[in-house]
Amino acid sequence: MAYHGQVTVGGPPDVHELTHLIISKVAVGPMDNNAYLLRCRQTGEQLLIDAAEEPQTLLNLIGPSGLASVLTTHRHGDHWQALAAVVAATGARTLAGRHDIAGIPVATDVPLDDGDEVRVGEVALTARHLVGHTPGSIALVYDDPSGHPHVFTGDCLFPGGVGNTHQDPQAFTQLLHDVETKIFDRLPDETWVYPGHGDDTTLGDERPHLSEWRARGW
């Protein structure tokens, strides 16, 4: 079945099968967070993006193959409630943006900076540091050599706008700048966007609205 990215809490994961990478998306409660499991087809190594909640749901998704790494996109509590349990069960190493690790109550093994490479088996992804939703938010970009790019944006980019900056004009300006210069300016319209909550989108669907977002200030 074709991947659509529409998942519900308590429902099954949706699976996006690429040439080199398998992406499984699941929703967990109570704040309808998305978690993403990336699996390298060549090696079977797996990386989890955001151990948000429901550790047993995430461990079921991970399965018997084990988990090499878990990346936390940012320090907000709804994105790491299951982190300690998942790490305890799997022994996975932890990754997070350098400027957010103080707010994540599980030790970060690998602090990430803008441009750092994150590997899952034979697949390489790139960390992008986006400031505004939090000081250290990380988006993860997979530039698929056999297709279009894919970007996991945490709470920095959604269908219809950038993430919440709590009515702080400076934070909004910074976040929009980073999203434009590090995501929209570097990636094509076909880029698939996997956000921290809700449905997926593409950069092509969102690009025409950048000026609207700037004008409204959120």
Rank of each mutant, 00 (worst) to 15 (best):
Y3I: 10
Y3W: 13
H4T: 14
H4E: 13
T8G: 11
G10H: 10
V15D: 04
T19N: 14
I22C: 12
K25I: 11
V28R: 02
P30W: 13
M31T: 15
R39L: 08
R41K: 14
T43G: 06
I49H: 03
E53T: 12
Q56H: 10
L58K: 02
L67H: 04
A68R: 07
V70M: 05
W80G: 04
L83E: 02
V87K: 02
A88R: 11
T94V: 08
T94F: 02
A96K: 00
I101H: 02
D114H: 06
V118M: 04
G121Q: 06
E122I: 11
V123E: 03
V123T: 05
A124N: 10
A124F: 09
P135W: 02
S137I: 04
Y142S: 03
S146A: 15
H150Y: 08
V151E: 00
T153N: 04
P159G: 07
G160P: 03
N164A: 15
T165P: 01
H166D: 13
D168W: 07
P169R: 02
F172Q: 01
V179Y: 00
E180N: 15
D185G: 11
L187I: 09
D189H: 13
W192R: 12
V193N: 00
Y194A: 03
D199G: 10
D200W: 08
D200S: 14
G204T: 06
W213S: 07
